[in-house]
Design a protein around this nucleic acid. Structure first.
Lengths: 351, 351
DNA sequence: TCCGCCGACCGAAACGTTTCTACGAGGTGC
DNA sequence: GCACCTCGTAGAAACGTTTCGGTCGGCGGA
């Protein structure tokens, strides 16, 4: 085709792709400078950087062809200390592998929103996509990544759904409902819930599901039976101790995750209570080992691996430039009945 | 024809670095072709490829600048299904992070030696280094990585130490010794061991430590009390069932990891045996949750996070071109006494 | 006030890589 | 035998990145 036709004006010789050079011209800088900005390199004044970033944002630069992005998907964890995380990694890995991609893992040590340094490093690595687990990116971070055509998928997002980003989660509300209903059907009326911190919307959803079940059964939700604790064994232990120390203790406890349930087990042991004879317990997650503890834990299964896999698939879709059908995907939770639940001891048949 | 710098005579304009373009001219091909050869891309005839490779060899091309290795350390797991793995990841991550590096995670799904595809992918990603967990790379793979100056550190190597590569491990022999000695001191004489597969030298070492303790105490090692099972709950369960079904069952069982110990717990429950009253159990690893199971597990602690961190440090050393002091680092194991061990029921004071 | 040094900042040039087009050999159908 | 297609191969051009030298403003010393 018209190859030798001069580009006198820098003329529309080709399809007018948005290239670094073009951005540079628009911003009144040179291509290297734009490159530095894009890759988070240093040596660019803040004002210049901002100007360039503005142009990039408005013009929606996306990397030429598919050449550059490293064959990597980054997973950002808030904490990396439970089998929970591992299952997700496995799911992601499973999807990535056949495509010749790899997953990187980062731990934010409890921060919900990644810090500045993180953003810079991600840009420098130029991954194909980012999966944020229980993360809450700022709008600015979303913008920066979006302008580089790095798709972001949030898994089990905390904070508000918002940000129009894609996300994957489980049916938490339903899980809470099913768990509480199960206990109600066994005849329990004093059902406590030890929930996780409010920041996690998954926890709020679980609580709402629990509430809905009790409401539907006409059982009042007693505020004192609603506790909040960190999503660890110690959290469940502390609150369970307190709950079981009350004059009129609950006959069943539903926890926001399996680790808290382990804490409840421990508290029960301390008090000499037998599970499930004296106390029923329902957890959440279905970590691999809870079917082996004594007694095997009844819990709400989250398909963690599948959630990871789904998130990865979403990232791949987005990275390929396709717009996936759904912005939010929720996978089903299922109640796994084992042996930590039974009808309450004092058969609740008083008048 | 390129720039004005007529290199007709090779007019030493700069230091005449060896560049792709120069190689290309010498080989009578274009720069893209040379690039393809260097990066193992397809689309180059074998004859051409050989000619170019010959030139490269004689002229000793080396990549321009030092820009190349991506800021990534790859961790290769044999299996990614236990907290075990997660602890290691955390340790590695902890060390990498301050250097602005990230860890990638790959699962080999049980294979001890990574396959061909893996090697190719690693080369394509050009990481700063590789940490193989329970892995056994072939000599060829070692060679390929070495020639690209990608250091390899093996963590808890399986197969023979060999291969002169750096490695990190725990004092497994000592762990086995301490575990068995602990049981002996409690008065046990019939001490079974459920070990992991022979391929893992860490398992062999644990067994040897166990043997050494028994020998030292003058207690004969009964072959029938020595079992081998996969390093999972089911493995421990199956062998413990069998052991406890014998006419003269052991009074204590030492397992090669905590998951197997969980299986022993389950088998004991099935038989109606109480731990530790009727059966003592000692595990290996000290996974986070075993202090919360009923009863809390006595186990040999491996400093998994520290092992990961050490491996990462080794990789960094090697990547920086420094030769580390030691090729093999072994971290201490410690016995964590909890409540799964007690003196044998039939106090062993017969004459 | 002037000079010289220094650091921050930016761009020209060179480089390696990818994409896309061009060319030719071998095969196929008519 | 000819047109046509296909596949493998090579190169031209364009692109993004890095290196390295130049420029400019500020600051301390004379």
């Amino acid at each position: 085709m018209t190859s030798p036709d001069a580009d006198t004006t820098g003329g529309a010789r080709r399809r007018r792709e948005i290239t670094v050079a073009r951005i540079a011209r628009l911003a009144g800088v040179s291509a290297p400078t734009v490159s530095k900005v894009i890759n988070g390199r240093s040596g660019v004044a803040t004002s210049t950087r901002q100007r360039v970033e503005e142009i990039i944002r408005t013009h929606g630069y996306q990397r030429h062809g598919r050449a550059e992005p490293t064959p990597i998907v980054e997973i950002v964890f808030q904490a990396l200390d439970s089998l929970w995380a591992l299952e997700i990694i496995r799911g992601v890995e499973q999807v990535l592998r056949p495509h010749g991609l790899t997953a990187t893992v980062t731990e934010m040590h409890g921060q919900l929103t990644p810090d500045k340094a993180w953003a810079r490093q991600v840009l420098a690595r130029r991954p194909m996509g980012v999966i944020g687990v229980s993360a809450q990116l700022t709008a600015a971070q979303h913008g920066e990544l979006a302008s580089r055509a790095i798709p972001v998928v949030t898994l089990d997002p905390s904070g508000e759904p918002a940000h129009r980003g894609a996300s994957v989660g489980a049916m938490n509300w339903n899980g809470g409902l099913v768990a509480a209903r199960h206990l109600l059907e066994l005849g329990h009326r004093r059902i406590a819930m030890i929930n996780g911190p409010d920041e996690f919307i998954c926890c709020r959803a679980r609580l709402d599901g629990y509430r809905a079940a009790l409401d539907a059964a006409g059982v009042p939700v007693e505020p004192d039976l609603l506790r909040v604790a960190p999503l660890y064994v110690e959290g469940g232990l502390a609150q369970a101790r307190d709950l079981l120390g009350q004059p009129d203790p609950p006959t069943a406890i539903f926890t926001a995750n399996d680790l808290q349930a382990l804490g409840v087990y421990e508290a029960a042991r301390e008090k000499g209570l037998r599970i499930p004879a004296d106390l029923s317990v329902v957890g959440f997650d279905d970590l691999a080992f809870v079917r082996w503890i004594g007694p095997p834990l009844t819990t709400v299964r989250q398909p963690l691996m599948k959630m990871g896999a789904t998130a990865a698939e979403l990232v791949l879709e987005l990275a390929a430039g396709r717009q996936p059908g759904h912005d939010r995907i929720e996978l089903a939770t299922t109640l796994i009945e084992r042996q930590s639940t039974a009808p309450p001891r004092t058969a609740d048949s008083r008048p």
